[in-house]
Design a protein around this nucleic acid. Structure first.
Lengths: 218, 218
DNA sequence: GAACGCTATATTGTCGACATTCCTCTGAAT
DNA sequence: ATTCAGAGGAATGTCGACAATATAGCGTTC
């Protein structure tokens, strides 16, 4: 896992705000007042502005000139659109991972899945959050494509997590998702780019359908 | 075409800097000194900093804490990676456009291609830049997917243009590209999502291969 | 009573100055 | 000659104050 390190005060404020937004401490749709936040976090408005600018770059807030910044509003349609982008990008990531991951990295990925299998078999649902994330992160990083990594990890994943937390989605589907992960890894191990992409896209598409079903229930 | 309107001073500075970077007036790899730029553009450093922050969000510059910002360096590998992302995203855009564009929009797109056909037949190479861009923009917008639109139009396209200008790529391939465009539009008109995506991906893949060939020559 | 315009206020945008960090250059010691 | 340490300088990071803009509330007019 890549650990972001806060060197400057704006970094810390950015990480704090991002966490508060994603976890729902700052509710979606609410306004971000610069003066208010500067007193709350005991930093100058310049720092807050810098942090808000970065939040905008992550698509977590929207700014309007001379008006201010608001946390993005979460809509079912927005979540669907997010999954469409994710399907396209992670599909390509799996394709590139099949081409660019080293044999060692693939071996690590395989053993990771074995560990996951143990936790799942033991009835432990630890797999739900961290395991799923770890799997997807490794493949994204395995693509060795800097743009892909940037957009997915710094952009889309925080938004996805925000949706999960706030719309009360209970993580990924545990039972079937594991088999899907396994097949993706097999395709990558076989260096089958085409199949790796197809399987990853289907995996994400299933997740999307699953979420759509849950959204319709509520 | 979406016309961005500069309301604030930071907006103007951002647009100016972005243009200068993309067009090579500010060379790639060079350092962006805040004090220097603030005297050059007659604005305060705060404005410059805001502009640089936005440039970083577009992936046009890279910042390091307490060190400064540099214009991104252009490498053949980077361009290839960019086209991989573009293939994934615009493929999905074509798929969604086949689903979400209105009949009127599709009719407009068809007549746009007819106009292009005239200019190409007349031996006019106007098609090269603006025409190609217009075609791709319409399909991206036709996807009606806000994330897709954001990432492609505000992020990737400026970078692509920067590569084109500075590595001296002479626009898209005129003759064969036109037929490819036509087939994509036909698939969209037939509401064939699968085919629209496949054709768009191949279209971009061909462009990538074409560029790779040119890069090997030099 | 409703619509329009104005004023007051609060928020964002911009500025110059200060604090802090990094890089370079010098010089000394091994 | 090379390496390390420190001082100097220049850049970025942060701050508080001022300017410009949008919003809300009130009063006026039709």
């Amino acid at each position: 896992m890549i650990t972001e390190q806060a060197v400057t005060s704006a970094d810390k404020t950015f990480f704090q705000l991002r966490s508060d937004i994603v976890e729902g401490v700052i509710p979606s749709g609410s306004k971000l007042s610069e003066t208010e936040l500067s007193t709350k976090y005991q930093v100058s408005r310049a720092v807050i502005r810098e942090a808000i600018n970065r939040l905008e770059a992550c698509h977590l807030v929207e700014r309007r000139a001379n008006v201010g910044a608001r946390v993005v509003s979460l809509t079912p349609a927005g979540l669907i659109q997010l999954y469409q982008v994710r399907e396209a990008l992670e599909g390509m990531a799996a394709r590139l991972a099949a081409k660019n991951m080293s044999d060692d990295e693939i071996a690590d990925l395989t053993s990771l899945l074995d560990n996951h299998f143990q936790t799942v078999k033991d009835g432990n649902s630890y797999y739900q959050e961290a395991g799923d994330l770890d799997f997807h992160y490794r493949i994204i990083l395995g693509s060795k494509n800097q743009h892909l990594i940037e957009v997915l990890i710094n952009g889309i994943y925080h938004l996805i997590r925000m949706y999960r937390v706030q719309l009360g989605m209970a993580g990924p589907r545990v039972t079937t998702a594991f088999d899907e992960h396994k097949h993706v890894v097999q395709a990558i191990a076989n260096r089958d780019e085409e199949l790796a992409e197809i399987l990853m896209r289907r995996h994400i598409l299933y997740s999307k359908n699953n979420i759509e079903r849950k959204l319709l229930q509520s």
